[in-house]
Design a protein around this nucleic acid. Structure first.
Length: 83
DNA sequence: CGTATGACGTGCA
DNA sequence: GTGCACGCCATAC
């Protein structure tokens, strides 16, 4: 179970509360610094609430998107102290 | 197996 | 400074 997808889940799960990272950073951590494209794709298919995928934002500092709604994602980040 | 898509990123006008 | 278009990887169908 060491697929690209599994790696992303692991990385995102390792993100400490109050800390956010960009899709590019995640891709780099999984060993595919040029696959940030697929990173967002995998997270998109992620329906596991156990994964704080809401802590993964764009490189522009924007929220990006979220399965439950980008608006909710922004709310969660603010609640964690990520302004 | 092959094609198309997507929670993106960067470059250029 | 803002907007548009292209390119990229992996997954899903």
């Amino acid at each position: 179970m060491n697929s690209f997808k599994e790696n992303i889940y692991k990385i995102v799960k390792e993100i400490p509360r109050g800390r956010t990272i960009t899709y590019k950073e995640v891709a780099r951590l999984v060993g595919r610094p040029n696959a940030w494209r697929a990173v967002g794709n995998v997270l998109n298919g992620n329906k596991d609430s156990n994964i704080p995928c809401h802590r993964v934002i764009r490189s522009d500092g924007k929220i990006g998107g979220y399965n439950k709604g980008a608006r909710k994602k922004r709310s969660l980040l603010e609640k964690e102290g990520v302004l």
